[in-house]
Write a protein that binds this DNA or RNA. Structure first.
Length: 259
DNA sequence: ACTTGGGGTATGT
DNA sequence: ACATACCCCAAGT
């Protein structure tokens, strides 16, 4: 009747995940009110968040269809901000100890072997941002420094340096990174204003939204240098948004000279 | 005022 | 039919 049913967008889901990661399960109202997530969740109620979380948890779980009569909850739940995330949250969640190939499989085992492409890419991006933001080399960190930093912190394949090299080139090509000073979200916004002034039309909204998301996501990955899990998630977010931004740029390249 | 569990309806296989 | 996704209600705190 009143509601045509509003499907949850991936942005909303991400916001919800992030919110739960920060506030813990059950603090739905807090998450909804949090200015950091309210931009994505303003149209959802705390109850909606709860329901969505339930659904996500159910489908992310291997096969636990909606059991009602089963498992009447053996645990009373210690109610700590650490929660049964539907996707992530590694065994030793709090520390910097991460990613050794043996333990990671616990979270993404089901789809691990085939489609790793996108996921590893995101992971590498996250590592790069982590390295850059930690090293904070004003002249820009050279590749050796980045490699050695990451090697100290993560298990990486033998050809990692090669991978990293192409990865970096790509990021620079996409202007998500610069050679020289560390990347700043601010670098992106002025660019967009060009697009805006030329197009000024329907795409403006999309472009601004995309740019804002990229900026926000990248900005976050600085803060999240210590929380690698978060960084991974954020990197994925950035990549999604970046696709949008690319589109906007292409359009600008085509029509920018005329309009 | 919020959280929580149950349930209802639409939609996809 | 069954499972899933979204929404709503009523009870408990």
């Amino acid at each position: 009747m009143g509601n045509p049913k509003q499907k949850w967008t991936s942005e909303e889901e991400e916001a919800l995940r992030a919110g739960v990661a920060k506030h813990g399960t059950g603090k739905w109202k807090n998450i909804q009110k949090d200015p950091e997530f309210n931009h994505f969740l303003y149209s959802r109620s705390n109850i909606d968040l709860k329901d969505k979380w339930r659904n996500m948890s159910v489908s992310a779980n291997g096969q636990g269809p909606r059991e009602k009569s089963r498992t009447p909850k053996p645990k009373v739940n210690t109610d700590s901000p650490a929660t049964p995330l539907p996707i992530a949250q590694a065994p030793g969640s709090s520390a910097l100890v991460v990613v050794d190939p043996a333990s990671t499989d616990v979270l993404m085992d089901d789809s691990s072997q085939c489609v790793l492409d996108g996921k590893t890419t995101s992971k590498y991006n996250a590592m790069i941002y982590e390295a850059l933001s930690t090293l904070k080399d004003p002249n820009g960190s050279d590749i050796s420094a980045i490699v050695s930093f990451i090697e100290k912190r993560h298990e990486v394949p033998q050809n990692f340096r090669r991978l990293l090299g192409s990865r970096l080139r790509r990021l620079v090509a996409q202007e998500k990174l610069e050679k020289g000073p560390i990347p700043k979200p601010k670098e992106i916004r002025p660019r967009l204003s060009q697009v805006n002034s030329y197009l000024g039309g329907t795409l403006e909204e999309a472009a601004v939204a995309a740019a804002y998301k990229v900026a926000e996501a990248e900005n976050k990955s600085f803060v999240a240098a210590e929380a690698v899990k978060e960084a991974e998630r954020v990197a994925k977010m950035a990549e999604e948004a970046d696709a949008f931004l690319q589109l906007a740029k292409e359009i600008y390249d085509k029509f920018g000279g005329f309009i």
